[in-house]
Nucleic acid binder design. Sequence first.
DNA 1: CTGAAAGCGCTTACAG
DNA 2: CTGAAAGCGCTTACAG
Lengths: 338, 338
Amino acid sequence: MQGTGRKRLTIRDVATVAGVSSGTVSRVLNGKNWVSPEARTAVEQAIRKTGYRVNPHARNLATSKSNTVAFLLNESQHVLFEDPNFAHLVRGTARALAALEVHSVLIMAGDAAEQARAFAYISAGHVDGVLLAFTSAGGTPLVERLVDAGVPLVSCGLPVGDFEGRLGSVAADDLLGATQVMEHLLERGHRRIATITGPADTPGGIARFEAYSRAVGDRFDERLVVGGDYSRAGGAHATHALLERTREFDAIFAANDAMAAGAIDALLEAGLRVPDDVAVAGFDDNDFATATDPQLTTVRQPFERISIEMVRLLMDIIGGEQPATLTLPTTLVVRGSA
Amino acid sequence: MQGTGRKRLTIRDVATVAGVSSGTVSRVLNGKNWVSPEARTAVEQAIRKTGYRVNPHARNLATSKSNTVAFLLNESQHVLFEDPNFAHLVRGTARALAALEVHSVLIMAGDAAEQARAFAYISAGHVDGVLLAFTSAGGTPLVERLVDAGVPLVSCGLPVGDFEGRLGSVAADDLLGATQVMEHLLERGHRRIATITGPADTPGGIARFEAYSRAVGDRFDERLVVGGDYSRAGGAHATHALLERTREFDAIFAANDAMAAGAIDALLEAGLRVPDDVAVAGFDDNDFATATDPQLTTVRQPFERISIEMVRLLMDIIGGEQPATLTLPTTLVVRGSA
DNA sequence: CTGAAAGCGCTTACAG
DNA sequence: CTGAAAGCGCTTACAG
């Protein structure tokens, strides 16, 4: 990669220029303290002068670490690219990793063939650990193999399956968040609150519905519960289904913002006013929340912090710590829709 | 990564089990022919038995290659994730690379900081070459640095800027494709054809407009030309603008499918029928083309083949060949919209 | 066809 | 604080 065919510069070249041994060069490269100020500056100058760059392969071999972390996309691209939460997470973790000077790469593993390749790549030692988002059932086999192989792993949200204590995870407090919206809806005087749930095979979907059930208590009416798939179209569809069953509800709590946006679409289409006729609340506080009219009352997931903590946890695990689980608080964001 | 803390298996362990020297193990690993059938099977069995995996860092150091290629995302994620062409390309090239047993990683380089990190990562030798899609002006500086550093590179479409002969590229024949649609429109009897152009800083945008101009010839009327940004919303917006200027047109050629879909949105909204009042044609033949009603008449870009050729070209360049430029033919796809 | 050995470019105890 | 040296796990001429 050195432009012209020139032989690659090595640590020895730098040592020669600086008038020290290669061991010393390595020490300044790695920020060790057992280096005299003079030696250090001599080496630093030599590096600048020669344009030396360390050879990662040699370093990786010597340390048996790669100094890079993978963000694993174990879903079909399609699904992920449409999800703004996912974009936040990829961006946030990349930034957090960069601050620690560790590299990050994205690895796709949508179908079985890709999963096999991803496993080979990761377990061969190309990366020191892996970050994971939204593990749905489809990605579980890969995660299982990775965990079994002893690869440090942290996911956003608990993955489906039995991984207790074998991988780290950080998630927003779904129960708290959903309770916050429900209490807000109740405070505003709503008594017939419908809900559009998330998929039943996702921890978030389950917890948010649980909070809903507790909040409505005795008034629980299963006609007011309709299933969704976290997509905007799904939210609209669910709302239509709801409207066909009954018009006797004055609020909808959608398990995420995309579905809440879809609910508003459907409500407006049906000639209903939001929030006057029906209030709508979501969950996430992502791009969808401000793309509707009225904008969404919702629960903010602290993605920035989630990203940072995911990275911190992963680095801990790579460093030999036991995998921990972290739950972060959410905050209610009140806008026009409820 | 070896599950428990066991010492990592090496080629020597395999050699011992197989009763040969480590050199021989290496030879079968690398598919050399100077290995007797007996030795080969003995080694293969030993590998299976021990579960040995080669250490990529050691191999990379010895060969000074990484056997991995990067797909560089030198745009904000946002833009790319919404573009179905991009998804095809990433998927297609990953598959083509996999067939050659070379790894692929995605690297994001949206802002300046990420670009700097991407450059460091790539030029350090982590990858042997890089694939690039849709180089717009924003990504140019990075591409320039990479090219200067002698990194093998191939882009889909010619990048903006002066890179002649210094990077490979493969693209569909925009001029041909756009001419195909225009001729189809003309054959159907349309005489007042409007166009929604792509951004003027993209080669595709320029070529498609060029073909439009040639096709309309003397009848060129600048009121029928309106600028777009390749997005669906942009296409709708452009169409509204067009309708405000004049209603005297019987067809629209949009420079891509997303804008064509937007054009249909706007036309229907204005109470016009497609294709009866106004015919609409696009370019790409991607997911948008079949998501409209009526479905789009458009030009198919052979993404599958583009992907394969991009990889082939890149491997050639990595192998020491000079960067080549490849232009692939397009085909007209006639559906209901025109 | 195969073994012994050098070499890839670092890091890191080990002496001093 | 620093140098000499071993070691990381492969690949690849070089002999044979």
